[in-house]
């Protein structure tokens, strides 16, 4: 197995890790960087639980080889809050009961952030399209849509 040295900006911090070439970014983030907020739901890009923002784009980290992250800027769920101050999306998911078991929650938050960064005032249909890569088995999704709408409206007021 070949090992590669990777340097990336992860949640604002320059981070270095050593990884085997065939390792997924998901496993590298969890096992080597300690970011266990990034969840593995399927490992095949079908559920979105491992979503991260890589160079501004929404990615399933299970589909990315860890060496590809060299030089990249990566944001995970751990990077959304500003210290103790939750991101409006986090606050609205919390207040709106948009989570139950919570395994899908980090992926939804990250995907919703990418959406609101591009489109601060999305329609319900646009929210559904943007979150179609994230599966949730608990909530039935409605409270997730409401939470994203509420966060969008709070962020516009702010």
């Amino acid at each position: 197995m070949s090992k590669t040295h990777v340097t990336a900006i992860i949640n604002g911090d320059q981070t270095e890790f050593l990884t085997e070439d065939g390792t997924s970014l998901l496993n590298a983030l969890r096992d080597d960087v300690g970011l266990t907020g990034v969840k593995e739901g399927c490992g095949t890009g079908d559920c979105g639980a491992c979503s991260v923002i890589m160079n501004g784009a929404l990615n399933a980290s299970c589909l990315v080889f860890a060496p590809e992250a060299d030089g990249a800027t990566i944001v995970t769920v751990e990077g959304l809050a500003d210290g103790d101050h939750l991101h409006p999306l986090q606050q609205c998911f919390l207040e709106g009961a948009a989570l139950q078991c919570g395994i899908c929650t980090p992926g939804f938050l990250v995907a919703a952030k990418v959406l609101l960064d591009k489109n601060p005032n999305p329609t319900e249909t646009e929210i559904r399209y943007a979150l179609a890569g994230n599966l949730c088995r608990c909530t039935g999704y409605d409270k997730i849509i409401r939470a994203v709408q509420e966060a969008a409206s709070r962020m516009q007021e702010a």
Binding site: G37, T76, G102, L109
Partner: peptide, 12 residues
């Protein structure tokens, strides 16, 4: 709100 919600939205 749920007592576990904060840790679930922060990834903790």
């Amino acid at each position: 709100p749920r007592p576990d919600a904060r840790d679930k939205v922060t990834g903790d």
